[in-house]
């Protein structure tokens, strides 16, 4: 073997190019970018501002919960649906056989999720501040921004697992069937204490509920459970789904 074989390509360059290709690709796909950007913004404008039941607190509360709803979308769809479709086409196999580092594939999709999440959050902040009269301290805006963007990570892990297990034809429907009810039951569409007692109990096992509670703490609107509890549940979900994804990815003889 000569030295050429032992040369390694520039890893950072691969990460950047992979992320750039993936992001431009999805920006050019209106079927992805429009619904993921528009849904949270539309819902927030309707329920948080136009039909707001309590103009003093509702615009702030729902801005936070719809931001959680908003950042989960790109995480679940870019990973869940994206991977399932590429697997169905055989494109994923080609990538797997190529010398692309697996980390590049994951990092590119995480950066894509972060970019979409950041755009959604900033748009919701702007609408909240301008039309909903939301007033927060600077540290609150900044903390919320980072909680939302980083909070998409456990959902990236869930999406990755879905993408590796689901069939491409059923993936969009299945991901929606998880995304929408999970958002509603976690109290993202209306405040959690509006829901019946049983449903409030059930929300405890749902990760978006915990991310929302974490963010609501910043404005003192949470139910008052400890930060550690919320962080631990999110971490357990992330770990569980990373393990499941790895298990499926490393399994040979797929399909």
């Amino acid at each position: 073997m000569n030295s050429q074989a032992l040369d390694k390509p520039n890893l950072l360059n691969i990460y950047l190019l992979e992320a750039k290709t993936e992001t431009t690709r999805l920006l050019r796909t209106p079927g992805f970018s429009i619904p993921t950007l528009l849904f949270p913004i539309m819902f927030y404008t309707f329920f948080g501002i136009i039909f707001s039941m309590n103009p003093a607190t509702m615009p702030t509360y729902l801005m936070i919960t719809y931001a959680v709803f908003g950042v989960i979308g790109p995480a679940l769809f870019s990973f869940g649906v994206g991977i399932a479709i590429e697997r169905g086409q055989g494109w994923f196999d080609l990538k797997e056989v190529s010398p692309m580092p697996a980390s590049a594939y994951i990092i590119s999709r995480i950066s894509l999720t972060f970019i979409f999440a950041a755009v959604i959050v900033v748009l919701l902040f702007a609408i909240g501040a301008v039309f909903g009269g939301v007033q927060l301290m600077r540290w609150q805006w900044i903390s919320l921004f980072f909680i939302f963007v980083l909070g998409s990570l456990p959902f990236c892990a869930i999406g990755m697992t879905l993408g590796l297990y689901l069939k491409s034809s059923s993936a969009p429907a299945t991901v929606n069937l998880i995304y929408l009810p999970m958002g509603f039951l976690s109290g993202l569409w209306m405040p959690i204490n509006f829901l019946p007692e049983v449903m409030q109990q059930f929300a405890n096992i749902l990760p978006p509920y915990h991310l929302a509670q974490l963010a609501l703490k910043i404005t003192n609107m949470d139910l008052g459970f400890p930060v550690v509890l919320h962080l631990s549940v999110l971490a357990v979900y992330a770990l569980l789904f990373i393990v499941l994804a790895l298990k499926s990815y490393n399994k040979k003889d797929k399909q």
Partner: peptide, 8 residues
């Protein structure tokens, strides 16, 4: 391969 990512 049945298809490549469309928008690249």
């Amino acid at each position: 391969v049945a298809g490549l990512p469309d928008m690249s």
